[in-house]
Amino acid sequence: WVPTKREEKYGVAFYNYDARGADELSLQIGDTVHILETYEGWYRGYTLRKKSKKGIFPASYIHLKE
């Protein structure tokens, strides 16, 4: 896992994603996520609506905010 280059990196989910394991994070369309790390097509972070739950999710489900 590699920390993100920018201190504040955010994105928005444009697909729903159902977590398949305890380390994964479920997403709903429109969720804003804070991205902490990246690795081979995956991000690690949390949604702003539930900051206490961190997990991994596919990068392809996220539109990055500039």
Rank of each mutant, 00 (worst) to 15 (best):
W1L: 08
V2Y: 09
V2H: 13
V2G: 08
V2R: 14
V2T: 12
V2D: 08
P3H: 04
P3E: 10
P3Y: 06
P3C: 10
P3T: 08
T4R: 05
T4N: 08
T4I: 11
T4P: 10
K5I: 09
K5W: 09
K5H: 11
K5P: 10
K5N: 14
R6N: 12
R6P: 14
R6L: 11
R6K: 13
E7D: 11
E7W: 14
E7L: 09
E7N: 14
E8M: 11
E8F: 12
E8A: 12
E8P: 09
K9E: 09
K9C: 13
K9N: 06
K9G: 06
K9R: 14
Y10T: 06
Y10N: 02
Y10D: 01
Y10R: 07
Y10K: 05
Y10W: 15
Y10P: 02
G11C: 09
G11T: 04
G11R: 02
G11Q: 05
G11F: 03
G11Y: 04
G11K: 03
G11P: 00
G11N: 01
G11W: 05
V12F: 06
V12A: 02
V12N: 01
V12G: 01
V12R: 04
V12S: 03
V12W: 07
V12E: 05
A13V: 13
A13P: 03
A13I: 03
A13L: 03
A13G: 01
A13M: 03
F14C: 15
Y15D: 15
Y15N: 14
Y15G: 14
Y15H: 14
N16C: 11
N16I: 06
N16V: 07
Y17A: 01
Y17V: 04
Y17D: 01
Y17E: 00
D18Y: 11
D18K: 12
A19E: 03
A19P: 06
A19Y: 00
A19V: 01
A19K: 03
A19R: 00
R20S: 07
R20I: 09
R20H: 08
R20V: 11
G21F: 07
G21A: 12
G21W: 06
G21Y: 08
G21P: 03
G21E: 09
G21K: 10
A22Y: 08
A22V: 11
D23K: 06
D23P: 04
D23E: 11
D23S: 08
D23L: 07
D23N: 10
E24C: 07
E24Q: 09
E24D: 04
E24H: 06
E24A: 04
E24N: 02
L25V: 07
L25F: 00
L25C: 05
L25P: 00
L25S: 00
L25Y: 03
L25K: 00
L25H: 01
L25W: 05
S26Y: 05
S26C: 08
S26L: 03
L27V: 02
L27M: 01
L27Q: 02
L27N: 00
L27R: 00
L27P: 02
L27E: 00
L27S: 03
Q28S: 10
Q28H: 10
Q28A: 10
Q28L: 11
Q28G: 04
Q28N: 08
I29F: 05
I29A: 10
I29K: 13
I29V: 12
G30T: 00
G30D: 02
D31A: 04
D31G: 05
D31W: 08
D31L: 04
D31H: 02
D31Y: 05
T32R: 12
T32P: 07
T32Q: 11
T32N: 08
T32S: 08
V33I: 04
V33N: 00
H34M: 13
H34N: 02
H34Y: 15
H34C: 15
H34E: 04
I35N: 08
I35Y: 02
I35E: 02
I35D: 00
I35K: 00
I35Q: 01
L36Y: 06
L36K: 01
L36F: 07
L36V: 06
E37P: 01
E37L: 06
T38C: 10
T38M: 12
T38F: 13
T38S: 14
T38P: 00
T38E: 14
T38L: 08
T38R: 14
Y39K: 15
Y39P: 00
Y39T: 09
E40C: 12
E40Y: 05
E40T: 06
E40V: 07
E40W: 08
E40N: 14
G41S: 09
G41M: 04
G41K: 07
G41W: 03
W42I: 01
W42Y: 05
W42D: 00
W42L: 02
W42T: 00
Y43M: 08
Y43F: 10
Y43P: 00
Y43W: 03
R44Y: 15
R44V: 09
R44E: 04
R44P: 00
R44H: 08
R44C: 14
R44W: 15
R44F: 15
G45Y: 08
G45L: 04
G45R: 03
G45C: 07
G45A: 01
G45F: 06
Y46I: 04
Y46G: 01
Y46V: 05
T47E: 07
T47V: 15
T47S: 10
T47P: 02
L48R: 04
L48P: 03
L48S: 10
L48G: 06
L48H: 09
L48Y: 09
R49M: 10
R49P: 12
R49S: 14
R49D: 13
R49F: 11
K50D: 15
K50E: 15
K50H: 14
K50F: 10
K50C: 15
K50V: 12
K50P: 15
K50I: 10
K51T: 13
K51N: 10
K51I: 10
K51S: 10
S52R: 09
S52E: 14
S52A: 09
S52I: 08
S52G: 10
K53Y: 06
K53P: 04
K53D: 08
K53N: 09
K54V: 15
K54Y: 12
K54Q: 11
K54I: 15
K54W: 10
G55I: 03
G55V: 02
G55C: 08
G55F: 03
G55K: 04
G55D: 03
I56Y: 08
I56K: 11
I56E: 00
F57V: 01
F57Y: 00
F57W: 03
F57A: 01
P58Y: 05
P58K: 03
P58S: 03
P58Q: 03
A59K: 13
A59Q: 10
A59D: 02
A59G: 05
A59I: 10
A59M: 09
A59R: 07
A59T: 06
S60M: 14
S60Q: 13
S60T: 08
S60N: 09
Y61C: 15
Y61S: 08
Y61N: 07
I62A: 01
I62T: 03
H63C: 14
H63G: 07
H63W: 14
H63I: 14
L64Y: 05
L64A: 02
L64S: 02
L64H: 03
L64T: 03
K65V: 15
K65M: 15
K65F: 15
E66I: 13
E66W: 10
